[in-house]
Amino acid sequence: MKTNKKSIVLYLGLALFLAAVVAPFASSFPDGLEWVAEAKGFLAKAEVLQIWEHSPMPDYDLRGGHAFGTSISGIVGTILVFVATFVFSRMLSKRRLK
């Protein structure tokens, strides 16, 4: 049993395509939680803590906005998630079962 390289490339390619090409056309309406928070009057409680101020790509856009900000953020995030999950799973598998 070995993993088919072609299906891996296709699968990751699909993720990158969604993040880079489709994401800029996503709906910008408030989502479920945001809509409820607005309707029920607690949206203002969302604190902009330092995490936001130091975030490299707040709200999936480059700082100050950019024509391709969403696509760039999407590609960076997709690759980051792939690498993090891969490395973490490898680490898990390397350590012996007690």
């Binding site: 990751l12 993720a15 969604l18 994401a23 993090a84 999950t85």
Partner: peptide, 14 residues
């Protein structure tokens, strides 16, 4: 890892 990437990308698609 691919599934995680796919989920991240798909979560951007409101």
């Amino acid at each position: 890892a691919c599934t995680a990437s796919f989920i991240f990308a798909a979560q951007m698609l409101n």
